[in-house]
Amino acid sequence: MGTAPLDIIRAEHGLPTRRDMTRLLSTIVLGGLIYGAVMGAFSGIGPDNLRQILFSAVKVPLLLLVTFALCLPSYFVLNTLFGLRDDFAQALRALITAQAGITILLCALAPYTAFWYINFEHYRLAILFNGLIFAIASLSAQLILVRLYRPLIRNHPRHRMMLGFWLVQYVAVGIQMGWVLRPFIGSPEIPTEFFREDSWTNAYVAISEMIMRTLAGN
C-alpha cells in the first residue's frame, strides 16, 4: 500500500508491507509532534511558552508509542495461544497503520484546536475540547482498523475477539499514560514542567474521586 497520509486513511490497498513500516512510524512521530505542538500552544506561541510547546510535541507520540509497546507482549502471547500466530505480523501492521491514522486525523483536526484556543481562554474547556478531539480521532481510526482487519477476520473469526481485547487493553493503559504524561496543555498559572508534581498517581482513582465528588454534590 502507499504510505502517503491519505493512503493510510483510506486503507483500501490492504495491509502495509514490511517496507512501509519506517514510513508509518515516522508518520506517527511527525503527526504526533505537530498536534502536540498545537496542543501546547494554549498560552500563546511566544518564547515564554516555547518549553510547553516542545514538551507537548514530544508527549503525544510518546503517549501513542509507549502505550503501544506496553500492550504488545500480552497481545502477542494471547494471539499465539489462540492459534493466530501466523497472522500476527499482519495484525501488527494493521495496528501500526491505525496508529498512524490517529496522528493524521489529529493533524487534520489541529486547526479546530487552534481556533478554539484563539476564541476561548478557559483552561478547563481547553482540556475538554482536546479530549473531544482525541476521542474523535481515535474513534475514526477504528474505521481504518476494521477495514484492515477484515481479511484477517474472514480468515479466522477469532481475530474479532482479539481486536476487542486489544482495544480494551490499549484504552485502559492509554488513559493512565495520558494521565502520567500530563500536562499536555499547560495551565497558564502553573510554571511549565515536563511532569506534574503529582504525575505518578492513578487516573482511575482520580476519575472515581471526581465522580464521587460530583455525586455527593460538592
Binding site: S74, Q176, S199, T201, N202
Partner: peptide
C-alpha cells in the same frame, strides 16, 4: 503493563 501501573500508582 503491571510495572507501568506499579510505578504510576499509589493506590
Amino acid at each position: 503493563i503491571t510495572s507501568f501501573f506499579s510505578f504510576s500508582t499509589e493506590s
